[in-house]
């Protein structure tokens, strides 16, 4: 297969950036999308040009590092996969593929297709945990949790923090990401003690980071590689309102 790539190049956060076009020849349908970039990068380097920078690590769809906006969709045309799990057999010979970085004010571009997602870490630091210290905890089986509840919490906990939800949302909102953690801990008995404070703090941090507001379009969930459901956003709204009304945090 031969592919034409139109890729966003930006040499550092302050650079203006622009698209560059590359022809990639003899692409194997068995290649992953990122392996095609590897091959292109080796060719570029051989020509004395710097390779295209992009984030990636585990290459098996779980670390959440890879982040390409491909032909108008985060992680490309296939549902429920990350960029590293996308294979070239999903494209046709002669296709032109446009690749852009995640775009959001809260995800500034670092270089080419790499963006800074530390805003997600700060949301987690605001309250995405159960405040227990090492040791001194009860026996694991002292807290029975109904299987359905544990399963639902696990659905939410699967979030890999890639940011595709923000990238797809027309408002660059981080509600799906934030709600996944709020929801997981609101469902589990372990999360009850800090339930109200947690949601208040995480939502406040989310806003401080400059993400947009949720307008319930559902784009986030549609592109989520882990198919996190919109129900979690509704749960977070509910948690937030009831916390605001009933918590003693003035």
């Amino acid at each position: 297969m031969n592919i034409t790539l139109k890729v966003w190049r930006q040499n550092g956060p302050k650079d203006k950036g622009g698209f560059e076009t590359y022809d990639v020849k003899d692409v194997s349908p068995d290649m992953s999308f990122l392996e095609m970039f590897d091959v292109l990068n080796i060719d570029l380097e051989k020509d004395g040009k710097e390779g295209i920078h992009f984030d990636h690590d585990c290459r098996e769809g779980i670390c959440g590092m890879c982040s390409m906006y491909i032909n108008g969709k985060p992680h490309g045309p296939k549902d429920a996969v990350t960029t590293c799990q996308l294979h070239m057999r999903s494209f046709k010979d002669g296709d032109t593929i446009v690749v852009e970085p995640w775009r959001a004010a809260a995800f500034p571009v670092i270089k080419d297709l790499m963006v800074d997602r530390t805003s997600f870490d700060r949301i987690m630091q605001a309250g995405g945990y159960v405040d227990v210290s090492t040791g001194g905890v009860p026996d694991a089986n002292e807290i029975p949790i109904p299987k359905v509840v544990a399963d639902e919490a696990m659905d939410a906990a699967q979030c890999i923090g890639c940011g595709a939800c923000v990238a797809a949302c027309k408002n660059a909102s981080a509600m799906l990401f934030t709600s996944a953690k709020v929801s997981q801990l609101a469902l589990l008995p372990q999360g009850q003690v800090e339930r109200k404070t947690r949601v208040e703090k995480m939502v406040a941090q989310m806003e401080e980071e400059g993400f947009g507001n949720c307008t319930n379009t559902g784009a986030c969930s549609a592109v989520c590689p882990k198919e996190i459901s919109l129900e979690h956003i509704a749960r977070m709204n509910r948690e937030y309102l009831s916390a605001k009304v009933s918590s003693t945090n003035v």
């Binding site: 032909n71 108008g72 660059a172 909102s173 947009g212 379009t217 559902g218 784009a219 549609a222």
Partner: peptide
Amino acid sequence: KNKAARKVGYHVSTKDSESTWASK
């Protein structure tokens, strides 16, 4: 506020199967 959350837009606008035209 929503516009300010994405200062630089995309070259290819977002395609996804779920969200309706009205919602956007």
